[in-house]
């Protein structure tokens, strides 16, 4: 891949999101999240529910509600700090330069408006096309994302399309303005595996053809393994480990990353291969201020883990938030 690593397209620095509620202490859903996305690069954000991965993406897109939410840190896109931009500018950027695809294609589409109207609306707004030209562009777009018979499909309503087709339509809408950054939040989680494979292949192809960067948000390590250049693993609102994909999968240093890899059953593992679950559950924890939030579930825990919040350190191109990482010699063979 031909990236220019010297100047990232998107630089997230020390991003934090707090949800404030009257009469209750603030909930720090995201804290100290930093990562770069170079032009054309595909970056994975991996985490379980409550890890803050979706909130991070919404913060980057400026889609968090203003009420009861506090966002801090910096999100630099093209020399602009998106967090300080006025709403109007942000809305311009979001449609034109950045777009998002959500998990549930049904709720992301308006159920009472034909697909065609929804797609052409995006085109009209961002490409200054209208009427027949916009219709034609919409049909081309659907065709490009692999929807057969696009002119007929444009007249149909969302419920007449299958889940996979709806997700394709959403991807088409996201790509309508040729964004330079696409954020996909669990785009295949609601879909069957065979359909997931189609959508992932489509995303890979589209990103490759258009040169757009992609942030892939998922809970599935398998999805990022085949797709992403860099992967950041999140736990309880923080990035705990981030590295080049091959590095991360071959030599996980954070016990959480290692634990996840050892706990998922693999299709290619011989039957009888034991699974090593991570004990406890991810919702027990919100305790970063007093130490590593993963410590209660960690088999590699030492006393220092609960002395205070571990910093995010950068070791040889890998970011790691752990005071007692797994040794480098411990390899996960393929």
């Amino acid at each position: 891949m031909t990236n220019d690593p010297t100047r990232p397209l998107l630089a997230v620095r020390d991003l934090g999101v707090s949800f404030t509620r009257k009469g209750a202490p603030d909930v720090r859903a995201v804290d100290g999240v930093s990562f770069d996305v170079s032009p054309g690069q595909t970056v994975g954000l991996v985490g379980e529910s409550g890890s803050g991965k979706s909130v991070t993406s919404l913060a980057v897109m400026g889609l968090l509600p203003r009420r009861n939410v506090r966002v801090d840190g910096r999100v630099i896109f093209d020399d602009d700090d998106l967090l300080t931009l006025p709403r109007e500018r942000m809305r311009d950027i979001r449609g034109r330069d950045m777009a998002m695809v959500f998990q549930d294609p049904m709720t992301s589409l308006n159920p009472v408006v034909p697909i065609g109207v929804q797609v052409t609306e995006v085109i009209e707004r961002h490409q200054q096309l209208s009427g027949d030209a916009a219709d034609k562009a919409a049909a081309e777009l659907l065709d490009r994302v692999g929807i057969p018979d696009p002119t007929r499909r444009l007249r149909e309503y969302p419920h007449q399309l299958s889940g996979g087709m709806r997700q394709r339509a959403l991807i088409a809408m996201a790509l309508a303005c040729r964004p330079r950054l696409l954020i996909a939040d669990e785009p295949t989680t609601a879909l069957d595996v065979t359909i997931q494979a189609q959508i992932l292949e489509l995303l890979k192809e589209l990103v490759h053809d258009s040169g757009a960067a992609l942030i892939m948000i998922t809970h599935d390590l398998g999805v990022v393994a085949g797709l992403c250049d860099t992967v950041h693993v999140m736990y309880s609102g923080r990035v705990v480990e981030g590295a080049q994909r091959r590095e991360l999968f071959a030599r996980p240093r954070h016990p959480y990353t290692g634990g996840l890899l050892a706990s998922v059953p693999r299709l290619d593992a011989a039957r009888g291969t034991p699974l090593h679950p991570i004990p406890g559950s991810p919702t027990d924890v919100l305790a970063w201020p007093s130490g590593c939030a993963f410590a209660p579930r960690c088999h590699h825990r030492v006393d220092a883990c609960t002395d205070g919040p571990p910093p995010l350190e950068n070791i040889g191109g890998r970011s790691l938030r752990c005071v007692n990482p797994l040794p480098t010699t411990e390899e996960v063979p393929a």
């Binding site: 290692g258 009888g272 034991p274 679950p277 088999h299």
Partner: peptide
């Protein structure tokens, strides 16, 4: 095969 993390304090090590 997946690596087996040194299992201290984790669940009893399940064997094949």
């Amino acid at each position: 095969m997946t690596a087996q993390p040194s299992a201290a304090g984790a669940d009893p090590v399940p064997t094949g």
